[in-house]
């Protein structure tokens, strides 16, 4: 009887632990088409721990794709694709940008890699709300004291 209870408890703990752990990484494949001065798709969404494969195709001139934060770079020429594979182990929104001067708007050729959960954004947003609420609370306390 006791052994059965123990087994159930252990199974429960294991289930909770497995639930809290990051899900096993899935594999995502993106075919990113680059043309002056945009990427399509321009937002890539994955989860932390996912395996990401990017195939970069250029539709006009040579383009690059450099991922901020991951420090990864790939180049594609027309008719000559580039490929990039990595594990999305850092959460947040990362800009990927063209790394080959492709024309006058080249510095603004940008896309977004979103690795969920976007912990940095939620952290700063939570901090903002805490600060705002804190200031409200201080104001209320002071008002009560003055009253």
């Amino acid at each position: 009887m006791n052994r059965a209870v123990l087994q159930v408890l252990l199974a429960g703990v294991a289930a909770v632990a497995l639930g809290a752990a990051p899900p096993a990484g899935e594999e995502h494949f993106f075919e990113v088409r680059a043309r002056k001065f945009e990427y399509e798709p321009h937002v890539l969404r994955v989860n932390r721990g996912d395996r990401v494969r990017i195939r970069l195709l250029s539709e006009d001139v040579a383009h690059g794709l450099y991922v901020d934060g991951y420090d990864l770079n790939v180049v594609a020429n027309p008719g000559e694709d580039g490929s990039l594979t990595f594990t999305a182990d850092r959460t947040g929104r990362f800009i990927f940008r063209c790394s080959v001067t492709c024309g006058e708007f080249h510095p603004y050729m940008i896309g977004h890699l979103k690795v969920e959960p976007n912990t940095p954004f939620f952290t700063y947003a939570a901090l903002l709300l805490v600060l705002g609420a804190g200031i409200l609370a201080i104001t209320a306390v002071r008002r009560r004291r003055e009253a």
């Binding site: 901020d68 934060g69 991951y70 929104r93 990362f94 790394s99 940095p120 901090l127 903002l128 600060l131």
Partner: peptide, 21 residues
């Protein structure tokens, strides 16, 4: 062309926003 500390860009921007807020 060498991007510098662009991995920290969101953090720098977040800190600037909160500070000036």
């Amino acid at each position: 062309w060498t991007p510098v500390l662009t991995g920290y860009l969101p953090h720098l921007q977040g800190i600037a926003m909160l500070l000036f807020y």
